[in-house]
Amino acid sequence: MEPFYRTIIGVARTLFAAQGLKFTITGEEHIPATGGAVIAMNHTGYMDFTYAGIPARATKRYIRFMAKKEVFDNKISGPMMRTMRHIPVDRGDAGDSYRLAVQALRAGELVGVFPEETISRSFELKTFRSGAARMALEAGVPVIPMVLWGSQRVWTKGHPKRLGRTNTPITIKVGAPIAPYEPAADMTAELHTVMEKMLHEVQQGYTHEPGAHWVPQRLGGSAPSLEEANAEDERVAAERRARKEQARQEKERLERGGRPGDTGTGGSAQ
């Protein structure tokens, strides 16, 4: 029994109902009733993890999601995430989170992973990291593919959130488990192929608005192409790295006794 996690799910479902979200869920039978498994999901919006946990409730299970460390650092969301036993990920050093995930899998938990690591601005599948496959191999558990579609209409990168009563349809499809096998790169490639096929299947039954920002170019929308989206992701990542480096250098200057903003290159005052 996990009263806090169960309560949070109840609150979330109340909010979903207030928003008029219309869920179509298939494949829940692929979520095992017991035992560990990696739940691999595509990533198109900020609310994905709140929706992805719904299919697991068919077998009364909870998913421990791997989420960026910043969420755990927040004074409000941090205690909640820790109470629900989600797993923090430090993108600069993911070793600890990987070990915690494998430990949870061996203990029989469901661990939720976004193999793309970040939201896809194009809403097409980005290149997958091999972490999901490597965790499954080390823990000896299957990977269960899951795709979500429509969540990007609620809240995604670069667009205003729509958390009111939008009556947005959201489709979630769970695929058959993939047993772990070596090498991890081949398993990762299979996972990508399977999830891409699943994604295209759910898109076929979904009504897409021509020219809409949340619709991929392939389906007549105005979302950036995968190549354009990847280029933007790299630009944003480069800016983030530059800010971190600037902060590191500023910290070193302060530790040496310099003044904030002092570059240490100026001459003496006359």
Score class of each variant (00 low, 15 high):
131 G>A: 05
142 P>Q: 04
72 F>W: 09
175 G>S: 02
175 G>M: 08
114 F>P: 09
100 L>E: 15
163 L>H: 06
171 T>H: 15
156 T>A: 10
121 R>F: 08
78 G>H: 07
160 P>I: 07
138 E>T: 02
160 P>Q: 13
124 E>H: 05
79 P>S: 06
72 F>Y: 06
162 R>M: 06
88 P>Y: 00
74 N>R: 03
167 N>C: 13
89 V>E: 05
149 W>I: 06
66 M>I: 07
118 T>P: 02
165 R>C: 08
118 T>F: 01
99 R>S: 13
143 V>N: 06
67 A>K: 02
67 A>D: 05
150 G>E: 01
164 G>T: 03
132 A>M: 00
132 A>L: 04
157 K>N: 12
129 R>P: 03
175 G>N: 08
87 I>W: 04
116 E>P: 00
73 D>P: 02
139 A>R: 00
68 K>A: 10
162 R>P: 05
143 V>Y: 06
74 N>L: 04
84 M>F: 03
134 R>M: 10
159 H>I: 00
82 R>M: 05
157 K>R: 14
148 L>H: 07
79 P>Y: 01
172 I>H: 01
71 V>S: 13
160 P>W: 14
167 N>P: 09
119 I>R: 09
105 L>M: 05
146 M>L: 11
147 V>R: 05
149 W>P: 06
101 A>Q: 10
153 R>W: 10
144 I>L: 03
148 L>N: 11
113 V>F: 12
167 N>S: 14
168 T>Q: 13
122 S>V: 06
114 F>S: 12
146 M>A: 07
173 K>P: 00
134 R>N: 12
127 T>H: 14
84 M>G: 12
69 K>G: 11
153 R>P: 02
135 M>S: 05
117 E>F: 07
85 R>I: 06
148 L>I: 08
93 D>T: 04
151 S>Y: 02
161 K>N: 12
83 T>S: 14
84 M>E: 11
78 G>N: 08
143 V>Q: 05
137 L>S: 12
152 Q>I: 01
